[in-house]
């Protein structure tokens, strides 16, 4: 079983990338589980054709101590991709990080964490220990950073490197950085910059996803690009990226950059 986690700045396109990767993995015949680890619970929307699914935490809340069946938490989407949304509190209350931990405990209890590929789509930044849960022992062993060439996006990616590096110090942790995915924002010399950034942190750019209007159109039609426009160039980009991830054997403990160095790098390519 391959367990991969996608991390990156909020709004950078993690959920779109995750859903299209899941769709591409499924197309290639793999049994896929995608887990949305964001209280916004919109990670699997395109795979479920726009239908929101009940979140694991809402269900736990509603049921209390009554038993929960796996099919009440895991929903089948495009090409059999199994979809889970962790859910979480309303903005401004409670502890969403603890919610992620509780969701993982529930999924383990239900025996739902299985398949050929598990994709964890995690909230923008590792704001507390709860959001590092997917990187902990027994879960994702490969983290992919989703970033554009914008400085703040690189900054968030660099912060996540710090979390991976810290977790890697724990003797039994097997979590490693699998690579950097550039989800283009059409900034100047973006591909070069992200490649350079990936190299600087001790990794590599595993894929470049160009900005394409088809992504917006697919979302408006409540589908992944892979489903909405299967013969489009963009769908092939996701397929290529999915294949690269499955073939990937280059896993590293990243060396996060000092802020000054990161800024200098961004300035160099501006």
């Amino acid at each position: 079983m391959r367990q991969i986690a996608l991390y990156g700045k909020g709004g950078i396109g993690k959920s779109t990338t995750a859903a299209n990767l899941s769709a591409a993995f499924a197309e290639q015949g793999h049994r896929v589980l995608q887990i949305g680890c964001d209280p916004k619970h919109d990670s699997t929307r395109m795979l479920m054709h726009g239908g929101g699914i009940p979140t694991a935490l809402d269900l736990v809340r509603e049921r209390g101590t009554s038993p929960i069946a796996p099919e009440e938490v895991v929903f089948i989407g495009y090409r059999g991709v199994r979809c889970v949304e962790a859910g979480g509190p309303e903005p401004g209350v409670g502890c969403a990080g603890r919610g992620i931990i509780a969701t993982f405990q529930l999924l383990e209890k239900l025996g739902a964490l299985e398949g050929d590929v598990v994709v964890y789509d995690v909230l923008g930044d590792v704001v507390c220990g709860g959001f590092a849960m997917p990187m902990r022992e027994g879960y994702a062993e490969e983290v992919y950073l989703v970033t554009s060439g914008e400085l703040m996006s690189l900054y968030a990616a660099n912060n996540i490197c710090k979390a991976i590096a810290r977790l890697a110090q724990h003797g039994r942790s097997r979590c490693r950085l699998g690579g950097v995915i550039c989800n283009s924002a059409n900034t100047h010399r973006e591909k070069e910059l992200v490649e350079r950034f990936a190299q600087a942190i001790g990794s590599f750019m595993i894929g470049f996803v160009p900005r394409d209007r088809i992504v917006q159109l697919a979302e408006l039609h409540r589908q992944t690009v892979v489903e909405y426009a299967p013969s489009s160039d963009q769908a092939n980009v996701y397929r290529t990226l999915a294949a690269a991830i499955l073939k990937n054997k280059q896993f590293t403990i990243p060396s996060p950059l000092e802020t000054d160095r990161l800024e200098a790098l961004a300035f160099e390519y501006a």
Binding site: L57, V60, R61, G88, P89, E90, V93, G94, C95, A96, R98, G99, A102
Partner: peptide, 10 residues
């Protein structure tokens, strides 16, 4: 309980 810790205890 864990429920209130996640969703708030107010």
């Amino acid at each position: 309980t864990e429920d209130e810790i996640i969703f708030g205890g107010e």
